[in-house]
Amino acid sequence: MAALSAARRRWSLRLAAALLALVVAGVVWSDEALERSVKAAFLYKFSGYVEWPAEAAPSTDSPLVFGVLGDEDLAEELTRLIQARPSVARSMSVVRLKAFDPLPTVHVLFIGHAEADRLAAIIRSVRGRPVLVVTDTENALALGSMINFDLVEGHVRFQVGLGAARKSGLTLSSRLLAVAHQVVTRSP
């Protein structure tokens, strides 16, 4: 018994050391990459807390489509994340978009920081359509974004524009709101 628990303790120590090594490596590797992967994961998870109007809701026939604009790396990360889950892969897809391309049917539209200058115009182009607009630019909520990433004390957080989402016919789960850094009810 003592031998066993001793062995277990040794094993736990080794594991902890390995994990610590990983974390340190990650930080050294790139803060930016880590931030991107977190955002991709959040983006993927947001879909679980959003309800689309019945006619536009994703179903078995029409998979949930992520449109990614202005952030190639994140699109790649998101694609990889979806592919890693075979059961999810069949019901979700990622579409890479360019600014001012005619917008195909998407459920979630992510507009990267690269498109910050044209953000207002892009958001305006999808206004009224049941699309969850996610942005990565300061003050984007004022422009009609529904979820906007920001950094709080080095951690990725997000703000929610509840009014904009309602206008587009989307319902955001209260559980999502509970973990949001900031919730803005007033619509722009």
Partner: peptide
């Protein structure tokens, strides 16, 4: 269940 979103969105406070 209550804390699932907090875990998912890494909200330690919640």
């Amino acid at each position: 269940r209550t804390s699932a979103p907090a875990i998912v969105f890494r909200d330690t406070l919640t």
